[in-house]
Amino acid sequence: MGCDIGGIVCYLFPILVSLLLIRAAYVWYSTGKPRRRADSESVRTLIVLGSGGHTAEMLSIVNVLLKDRFAPRFYVAAATDNMSLQKARVLEDSLVQHGEPSEGKKIEASQYMQIYRSREVGQSYVTSIGTTLVAIAHAVWLVLKIRPEVIICNGPGTCIPLCVSAFLFKILGVKWSCIFYVESIARVRKLSLSGLLLYKLRMADQFVVQWPQLQKKYPRALYEGRLM
């Protein structure tokens, strides 16, 4: 009996692995291909914030997105960052005051969450391996909870575990999410580590830079002018 189960596992395992690989190949192939949606319902949107200018750039995008289309909105910032979520709250509160939500439709309220940081500014790349593992576990949990359809980020370290977990869930068929990466305006000549990873791993559906000279260097990136 036990031998049989072992045999079945021996047969099933390679099949499962091949199926997963085929699925991964399909997901990578589809990433970056425009999505066609006939219905104009809303999309669950994850916005990754970060100190050092990241938040201001992200909120400038949120500011011009249709609020009942990109809803509900989930803001995530590093646990050590007290300012960013506060700034997002100020923006969201100003929307409520201006009576943005259209009548009749019940729109889920925006949520604010904190995440362990994978790497503090100045932390060495070696020790950041351990902290990154913790951050990944936390990110997996957050992405499972949020189940975002759209992720918008611009390169604080926290966006990598979030994007990687979202991409894994995409492969596993848990949730299909589109990643929009807009490299921070502070990056003129070189991509950030986060940007470089997402670019090389081809995980972002659309990869945007804010300087033409950077676009020349990374031809798969798009240049759409400056945010700030």
Binding site: R37, I152, C178, V208, L227, M228
Partner: peptide, 19 residues
Amino acid sequence: TPGDALPVAKLINNFLGFP
């Protein structure tokens, strides 16, 4: 001249198939 987030917002909408 201050930047403008509208082109990026347009790109996101286009990609998702939103008008």
